[in-house]
Design a protein around this nucleic acid. Structure first.
Lengths: 193, 193, 193, 193
DNA sequence: GATGAATGAGCTTTCATTCAT
DNA sequence: AATGAATGAAAGCTCATTCAT
């Protein structure tokens, strides 16, 4: 049985190192040390440093996007869709924090290339449509600025990469519920009717 | 004048360059070109590249913090304080986007040094106390997770550095109002009592 | 082989260059040219320029010291020990002039660090004890200032790095004998008894 | 009354700085700091860094040489001349240690230029002639290698710049006497005749 | 696949020197 | 005489990348 390739190790190490030192601040030697090989050996797996960045970042970005697409196609109330968006987003952070951190830090909204700009935009647009649907259905406040709402939700979610301590799915679900509550109901106490 | 004459030019150029290319990705030669001097000449103003980073970032960080401290001392309803927090934060982004971008990208929540960790924490804590006060006064929902609320608000605000187009104070005020509305009332339509 | 293959070349080149231009006056590019590689490549062998200085200088310094220690433990008349000290010192100069030159020029008596200060002091002390033993045994003049004698001998030996032309072991032995004669008998003609 | 020029301050500061950090290791800014002016201002006094080196070093070198010339012309026994050589050399070290240190470290035997090589050589030659005269007069041992003797004496004297603590003329005279005794009579106890 | 070594470009930083004020 | 600022060359060092073994 041939020894399994260490591709996954390499990418995981890169995720950790890039998320800690930043892509620009990390050297391939740092990454190599983290895997336990020499920097030259990395080139058996990658063709450039940027290559490695994309390898770190792509799978989760695609998963998140594909989830949002599927959700969009479903027939659910907007409030439920919003809860799902937050839940999936935070679950991915919980499971793959270093990878997502790198995405948020180095790619999101940075205009790196057309491909990534398109992904960003599509995710944003899918989130915004949740709010649009909600307003359309009369569930959401008609005065709501849907774009601002979407950007704020995504900002709050992405910011979690700076403070969330991963590894606890229950906590992930709790945070998702809290965040959804805030975006749905706000902080103000509801008057009893 | 305590500072050499082109100090402000140097810092402004650095803010622009750092915010565009990232601190790690920008070279001092980039900064020097932006000011119109040679990279060696920069060292008449700074003692290291990191120095320059802090110089870019410190004034606005301090202004934001000092504002939050003053607000905390005031006797205002929590909802009003929340509106003020958002307004001042966004106004600074509107006026000083490159500087704030650099702060958000390179410093906030990065654990660079004790000094900056302390600043981060204090701002977070002051924002959280607005929510705590609101819950205490019965204005805010008693089920609200105040920490999550504070972190989400700050995340949404900081994320604005990735998309906000500055230079329009009226727009700044509008965005502040929208964001406050979301965090106070949520997206859901209010039932008529 | 524990060291990369051209380690010795690198150190030898550094010794030559440092001894010619001085440590401060020599650039790593000079050293690299002397080995026949690019300056960046040097960092496969060293971690800093200072590092290289110590690598140049340490082996002979340690050899000299270890020799003096062994000699100190032996049961020989002081005059014979003095002859041995001079002989070994000059033989090392003959074989390794550039290395020793660098030591003398850049390290000896310069208080670079505790480590080197200690080495200097120990060597000095071992040489002085030869004179102390000689005085104690009645072989040396009781009025002799042993510290001054040791310092003068070491000074005369170290000064040889400025004029000695190496590569001739017989000459080395001759110089050692002459120097020993001077320090033992002085210049004055002996009265016939 | 116009404020006296600070030329002497500048040279004295340079002597201190160069002797501490070495000529190559010291920057003109170091020197300027030591005088209490800005580095640019130094150029009101000097025309180049090397210039300053020579200014530090020349007066004492010339004094020493001129003294040796005068002594050479005198009609004195060789042993007395040797004592005078040592005495004057050490007195200058006592009074002007930093200046002499710089000479010994940076100029002596370095082949900087014809001028300095000539000075070195002449001083060496004058000292050697003392030994030659002593041998010729039958006062010194006929087997003495006069060149080796001169070089050793000068080496011992110059080496004092690495350990001598200046500022005590009496101590200077004592060291001169001890060193002369060693070079004249050697360490061996004299047999009573 | 991995290694050790080299490359070469680029980086931050230093510094002697110049010059208008 | 002194200053503050700029210059430009060179320094030490880093690093993505290549390649023979």
């Amino acid at each position: 049985m041939p020894r399994p390739s260490r591709w996954d190790d390499v990418v995981a190490a890169a995720a950790r190192v890039f998320s800690q030192k930043g892509f620009g601040g990390a050297s391939l030697e740092d990454v190599a040390n983290e895997v336990g090989m020499l920097k030259g050996s990395l080139y058996n797996y990658i063709t450039s440093k940027e290559d490695l960045l994309f390898a770190v970042v792509r799978p989760d970005a695609e998963e998140l996007l594909s989830h949002a697409r599927q959700l969009h196609a479903k027939d659910l109330p907007a409030s439920e869709k919003l809860r799902q968006i937050a839940l999936v987003h935070i679950e991915i952070i919980d499971r793959h924090l270093p990878y997502v951190s790198v995405y948020v830090q180095e790619i999101a909204g940075r205009g790196i290339s057309q491909e990534w700009t398109d992904m960003d935009r599509e995710y944003m647009s899918l989130v915004e449509q949740v709010f649009v649907e909600g307003v359309g259905a009369g569930d959401f406040d008609s005065a709501l600025d849907t774009k601002m709402a979407a950007r704020s939700l995504i900002g709050a979610l992405n910011w979690m990469t700076r403070w969330y301590e991963p590894g606890d799915p229950a906590q992930a679900r709790a945070k998702a519920a809290q965040l959804s509550d805030i975006f749905l109901s706000g902080a103000l106490a509801r008057r009893k009717g």
